[in-house]
Design a protein around this nucleic acid. Structure first.
Lengths: 243, 243
DNA sequence: ATTTTATATATGTACAAACATATAAACATA
DNA sequence: TATGTTTATATGTTTGTACATATATAAAAT
């Protein structure tokens, strides 16, 4: 199979190169920290200049998908499952970028009366039913996260949506709701029986628990999300800079 | 006042330009979304090429400090109320803000050969001894976190410092080392015997594990920190904003 | 008065070329 | 054996140049 870049495409060459590289490094052949061809060679192969290639590489390096080392080469980063708070990529997009295909093991949509905490967060009464979305997701080998989401009635979800599509895509394109602010609380806890059975681990095993509060542009609450992650397959990463 | 760039400095021009720009845009005169001079002009002023200047600008744009618009110009981003500054409080300050008085239960200073991971992060050999700081801290009722810190030799710590003072205070005031960037990995794990005994919990109990990589202004590694938190008394919070 | 068209301006894209510097491996030396 | 020294190789830095494209404004046409 041969890759090439279309010099006549309106899409900038460095973007094409970036996309191409994403495809290339997501290949299992490259997944395990294998080195790319050197820049001069790769530029020649793609028929672009080294500067343009570096433009593309820079982005992937910045995202943490590639690791460059002076005098050595550029290799594919180990595909750790992690979450960068800086990026507002959706869960699926983020995982895809790391060469992990997300499988949906379970997907339940129900209308329920909100708990005290949820009603309080949304500023609604506990008697009015709201949409609850439960999803068990993970890799082909098995699930590693159980999500529970509640949505504010204002959003207008019907429950008939195709939740296999990225959630933010649905909210933005179909409901014109743009998530802008997210507050998260991350903690560790022991898995109870229910979560343990879902994640296929033993009851009492440590799990990473993430509460996520999502707001729209007007800082109005739109989603209340609970995530239970298997401790052995999920790391949460945060990058912060002073000033 | 006039800025300039030293072409003889070993520090790359684009890094110098980046630092310079950081200073410039932090000036209140520039703080409120004011436009920078255009690239060609600014490059001339700084006596560097436009490409080099763009290299510097790119980084600041990526960090969200600058906003570029094709055909218009580059302006300083509005200062958002992010959690960045919040994340940069010291542990003690952070706890004080939550109304918790911190007690030091144990404090050990030793010189040790770094593990593979630490040596690799610092870019030093595993044979040279470095400073290791272990601290068991918590509330008056009992400890809830065990910290292990390693410091890069470059920092110049002697081990004789008064570690009851805030760490960042020591680094800044006594050693002129300013921590600027922090990358963290948060995960859950089961407490091993050692940690369990320190935190006064049962072995196998879930704990929150935080790896923290701290860099100075030149993005050089200065601290490698491991934190083991009792799950029942610690929650990690993150706030992130899109765009 | 309104719409269209030109134009100056600024960022965006792309290439070529040269030199600097870190790394690892091969080689030579004590 | 252990330690320097060279060398090939790969990324890092920097400049110069040219043209593309989006934007806002001013001028011209309707």
């Amino acid at each position: 199979m041969y890759f090439s870049i279309d010099h006549k495409s309106p899409l900038p060459l460095h973007v094409q190169a970036e996309n191409l590289l994403r495809t290339i490094i997501s290949d299992p052949q490259y997944a395990n920290g294998k080195f790319l061809p050197n820049e001069v060679q790769l530029a020649k192969q793609l028929a672009i200049s080294r500067s343009t290639l570096r433009h593309a590489l820079n982005k992937l390096v910045y995202e943490g998908l590639l690791i460059r080392k002076k005098g050595v080469g550029t290799k594919v980063a180990e595909p750790t499952i992690s979450s960068k708070s800086k990026n507002w990529l959706s869960f699926t997009q983020e995982m895809n970028a790391r060469g992990i295909t997300i499988k949906n093991f379970e997907l339940h949509v129900t209308w329920v009366k909100p708990t005290e905490a949820v009603a309080n967060f949304f500023g609604i009464s506990t008697s009015k039913k709201i949409l609850k979305l439960e999803r068990l997701r993970g890799k082909t080998e098995g699930p590693f996260v159980y999500f529970i989401s509640y949505f504010h009635p204002r959003v207008g979800l019907t429950g008939e949506e195709d939740f296999k599509r990225p959630l933010y895509d649905i909210l933005e394109k179909d409901y014109m709701v743009i998530a802008t602010l997210s507050k998260e609380e991350i903690s560790a806890k022991a898995a109870d029986k229910f979560i343990a059975s879902k994640l296929e681990i033993e009851s009492g095993s440590p799990i990473l628990f993430r509460k996520r509060f999502v707001f729209d542009q007007g800082e109005r609450p739109i989603e209340y999300n609970l995530g239970y992650y298997r401790a052995d397959s999920f790391v949460y990463t945060v990058e912060s800079r002073r000033e």
